[in-house]
């Protein structure tokens, strides 16, 4: 078991290494270097020299990679070009904001998705299922930039209940933050919950049709007891990986939603740094997002392993 965990962690590290290599090489092969791209028309003379010096672009690429990589391992991503400050300082508040948005969405969205999925499966083809399924399919099919815009139009502009764009002062209290992020959370949850509820529904339906559920009924197990003991543990197991992917997607910044609501999270930072040609920040973000995906998937795999007795004993026997 421990060996397996170590193996998985090792694989994750290799993935990260490859990602870092690819981003670095990608930046390297772009025409021009970080300074000429960033400075654009002012890329000449003293300004360019100073920039090259500051970024250390005068040393060979592999040396720069090694230098950069060893700094990243120590947690130092270097300097942002546009902000003229350490990238860590740029990232800090963004990570916090994304985290807040993601965790609120997760706390609301995932339990809701599971409950809706179970309800639609248990009342399959009956009124609750037809109603919920119509709504979920509807919100799944509308792209988020449309639903987000509609939300702003209706709730913020017509009704005027909530602010349409998010302006968070750096010293905002949690409550202030909360009232600001209601609309983005709703926009995100609509799509996420719908997807997951559909998944849970089909998983529960599949388990309900299994031999062991029929057996439990014929054994005389009361309905709800059967649902909780025999159906749900087996039906929700495959959902773990989907949940993990969703969480990773949320933490990585929901680019479109953040842009529409002007929310200062990681997603918008990606867009900003790309349009500002701030290559050091782009590099840093690539690594961070990759780490989030790798980390969360690792946790999901391990959880599946722990919860599924079939896999667990398989691993131990090996």
């Amino acid at each position: 078991m421990l060996l397996l965990i170590l193996k998985r962690i090792g694989l994750g590290l290799i993935t990260l290494f490859i990602v870092s290599l690819i981003t670095f090489v990608g930046v390297e092969v772009l025409p021009g270097d970080a300074c000429t791209t960033y400075l654009e028309r002012e890329a000449y003379g003293a300004a360019l020299d100073a920039c090259i010096k500051r970024l250390g672009l005068d040393v060979p690429a592999y040396e720069r990679y090694l230098d950069w990589a060893s700094n990243v391992i120590r947690g130092d991503f270097g300097y942002s070009l546009s902000g003229e400050m350490p990238i860590n300082e740029v990232l800090g508040p963004r990570v916090k904001n994304s985290l807040v948005l993601a965790s609120v969405s997760i706390l609301i969205g995932i339990p809701l998705a599971i409950v809706l999925g179970i309800i639609t499966a248990l009342w399959r083809d009956k009124l609750p299922d037809i109603m919920i399924s119509t709504i979920t399919i509807f919100s799944m099919t509308i792209p988020e930039f449309i639903s987000a815009t509609l939300l702003i139009l209706i709730v913020a502009i017509w009704l005027g209940w909530l602010p349409g764009i998010v302006i968070i002062p750096s010293d905002a209290t949690f409550y202030e933050l909360l009232s600001n992020i209601i609309l983005p959370v709703v926009a995100i949850s609509m799509i996420m919950t719908a997807h997951m509820a559909r998944m849970v529904r089909s998983s529960v339906i599949q388990v309900m049709a299994s031999d062991y559920v029929q057996m439990a009924i014929l054994k005389g197990v009361p309905y709800w007891k059967m649902v909780f003991r025999h159906v749900l543990p087996n039906a929700l197991l495959p959902a773990i990986n989907v949940v993990a992917l969703t969480i990773a997607w949320l933490l990585g910044g929901v680019v479109v939603t953040e842009v529409v609501f002007n929310y200062p999270g990681l997603g918008r930072l990606v867009i900003e740094s790309i349009s500002n040609r701030d290559l050091p920040v782009v590099q840093a973000l690539a690594i961070i997002l990759a780490s989030i995906y790798v980390g969360i998937n690792l946790i999901a795999d391990l959880m599946t392993l722990m919860l599924n007795p079939r896999l667990k004993s398989l691993q131990i026997r090996k």
Binding site: Y212, M215, A216, H230, P233
Partner: peptide, 15 residues
């Protein structure tokens, strides 16, 4: 009481 055809599938896997 019932004894099913394929006990491998008729026993709940997580219990």
């Amino acid at each position: 009481a019932m004894i099913p055809q394929n006990a491998g599938q008729a026993l709940t896997p997580n219990l």
